[in-house]
C-alpha cells in the first residue's frame, strides 16, 4: 500500500491469509494421521480415525444431538421472532427503541454470563442436562440474529403487493401464504440457517447446561481437546471445515457465474 504497485500491502495480506488458512489445513492433515492427536507431523496416514468417528457412539450421539438442537432452536427462534420483525416494520408504537434493545439483549450479554444464568435457572426448574433446556437457551440466543435478518428483508419488501393481493380477492392468510411467504422464503432460510449455526457452533452455554444426556458436538469436542488424547477431534474439525469450504466455494463459483453475463 505504500509503493506504486501496492506490492507491500498485497504481500502482507497474503501472509495474514496464510496465518488464517494454515491452521485449518493442518487439522485436515492431522485427521488422516495416526497416534496422538497433538503430535505434528503424524507418523503415518490412515483413515482409521474417520472410521472410529462413525463407529463411536460417544461422538455420533452428540453430533445427532447438535443437529436436533440446532433444528429445533432455529425453528423456535424463527417462529417467535418473525412476528416481531413484522411488527417493527409495519407499525410505530410506544417503547419501540426499548423493545428493540430488549430483543437484541442476547447478542449483548456475554455467553459465559448466560451459561451461569441458565445453569442456575435450569437447575431450579429441572431443565438442566436436558435437550429441551439447550433448545430453549439456543433459541433465545438466536433471537437477535433472526430479528436482524428478518427486519432487513422486510424493510425491502414491497407492501403494495399485499394490497394488490387483497384487491385480487385474497384474505390475510391467503396473502401471507401465497405472496409474502414465497417472496420472503430466502430470508426465512437465511435466518433459519444463521440460527442453526449459532446453535450448532455454540459451546459455552451448551458446555455447562447440556450435561452427558444432551451433550452437543462442541461440548464433546471441548472435552476431547481438554483430555488431549482423542484423534477423532481432528476428524470432526476437518469435516466441519470441509462442509464450510465446500459451501463457500460453491457460493463463490455461483456468484462468479452470475456476475459474468452482467459484465458482457
Amino acid at each position: 500500500m505504500f509503493n506504486g504497485s501496492g506490492t507491500l500491502s498485497r504481500t502482507l495480506a497474503v501472509l495474514v491469509a496464510l496465518f488464517i488458512l494454515i491452521p485449518m489445513l493442518l487439522v485436515a492433515v492431522m485427521s488422516f494421521g495416526q497416534g496422538s492427536s497433538l503430535r505434528f507431523p503424524p507418523q503415518s496416514f490412515t483413515l482409521d480415525s474417520y472410521a472410529a468417528y462413525f463407529k463411536s457412539s460417544s461422538w455420533t450421539i452428540p453430533t445427532l444431538n447438535s443437529f436436533v438442537i440446532g433444528a429445533f432452536s432455529a425453528i423456535l427462534a424463527l417462529a417467535i421472532t418473525t412476528p416481531a420483525a413484522f411488527a417493527f416494520t409495519l407499525y410505530d408504537f410506544r417503547g419501540k427503541r426499548l423493545i428493540r434493545l430488549l430483543v437484541m439483549m442476547p447478542l449483548m450479554v456475554p455467553f459465559i454470563v448466560m451459561a451461569l444464568a441458565y445453569f442456575f435457572f435450569f437447575g431450579r426448574i429441572g431443565l438442566l442436562n436436558t435437550m429441551a433446556g439447550v433448545i430453549i437457551a439456543h433459541a433465545c440466543l438466536s433471537i437477535p440474529i433472526v430479528f436482524l435478518i428478518q427486519s432487513a428483508s422486510l424493510k425491502g419488501f414491497d407492501w403494495t403487493l399485499v394490497r394488490a393481493s387483497q384487491a385480487c380477492g385474497a384474505g390475510a392468510f391467503t396473502t401471507f401464504r401465497r405472496i409474502c411467504l414465497p417472496i420472503l422464503r430466502p430470508s426465512f432460510l437465511v435466518a433459519g440457517l444463521f440460527a442453526f449455526i449459532t446453535s450448532f457452533d455454540e459451546t459455552v452455554v451448551a458446555l455447562f447446561i447440556s450435561g452427558r444426556a444432551a451433550s452437543t458436538l462442541p461440548r464433546r469436542m471441548f472435552e476431547s481437546v481438554r483430555q488431549e488424547s482423542d484423534p477423532i477431534v481432528a476428524v470432526v474439525s476437518t469435516l466441519l471445515f470441509g462442509v464450510v469450504a465446500a459451501v463457500a466455494l460453491i457460493v463463490a463459483a455461483r456468484q462468479r457465474r452470475a456476475a459474468r453475463p452482467a459484465n458482457r
Binding site: L21, M221, S237, T238
Partner: peptide
C-alpha cells in the same frame, strides 16, 4: 469467510496442534 464459519473449537484445536510440545 471460511474461517469465520468454521467451528472455533476446530480452530482452537488447530493451535494446540501447532503450539503443543509435540506440535509443529
Amino acid at each position: 469467510t471460511m474461517s469465520f464459519w468454521t467451528s472455533f473449537l476446530a480452530r482452537t484445536y488447530a493451535w494446540m496442534v501447532i503450539l503443543g510440545s509435540q506440535g509443529l
